[in-house]
């Protein structure tokens, strides 16, 4: 049995989670059924810690009263929950059909070369992480990528440079 990577206890451990208890209470109160709070609780934990730790799953299970094994089902089902640390800026690069047709492959390769990482990796300085994503529903702007919460469309090598170099 391989155990999940555990959170760095210095600043990502249970103390962080118990500090969220008050907010969790408010989230749970919004729904008729506690289990409906699983997704927002996981988002809250991820936004705070950076990714969904096993402790965060336990914490979500406690508040939503959903068995932790089923919380993990949810975490592994949705690609927007991360089970390991991501970079300060998380890039989701679209590899959907339209993007492939508009030549995303060369753009993706350029990005990989620029950051010196592969799909699923984090740069050594922790600034960027890359995830090849299925269609992000912005086909009119293909090829495109999502950096944190922003969409960047009609990518060229120049544009990619500008976007990434402009980030702190």
């Amino acid at each position: 049995m391989t155990a999940l990577p555990t959170a760095d206890s210095r600043f990502r451990g249970n103390d962080t989670l118990s500090a969220l208890d008050h907010e969790a209470q408010k989230i749970v109160a919004k729904y008729d059924e506690k289990r409906a709070a699983v997704l927002p609780l996981l988002h809250l934990a991820q936004d705070t810690i950076g990714y969904v730790t096993p402790e965060a799953m336990e914490w979500t299970a406690k508040w939503s009263e959903v068995p932790v094994v089923h919380v993990r089902e949810v975490v592994t089902f949705y690609s927007m929950y991360h089970q390991k640390p991501v970079g300060k800026h998380h890039i989701r690069f679209c590899t959907g059909t339209s993007c492939v047709l508009r030549g995303c492959e060369s753009q993706l390769n350029y990005l990989k070369k620029k950051l010196k990482i592969e799909n699923g990796d984090v740069t050594p300085d922790g600034k960027f992480s890359l995830e090849e994503a299925e269609c992000l529903c912005n086909c009119e702007g293909a090829p495109m990528m999502q950096v944190d919460k922003d969409y960047h469309v009609d990518l060229t090598e120049k544009k990619t440079d500008e976007i990434l170099d402009g980030l702190k």
């Binding site: 049995m1 155990a3 068995p67 094994v69 089923h70 993990r72 089902e73 089902f77």
Partner: peptide
């Protein structure tokens, strides 16, 4: 069976699509 009969919640289906797989929670038995 784990959810309804024994209430021990042992198994889950992790991942999705053709990569979905049955397993028990990591570290548990």
């Amino acid at each position: 069976f784990g959810d309804e009969i024994t209430k021990t919640h042992d198994f889950g289906i992790f991942g999705r699509g053709d990569r979905a797989k049955i397993d028990i929670y990591p570290g548990k038995e």
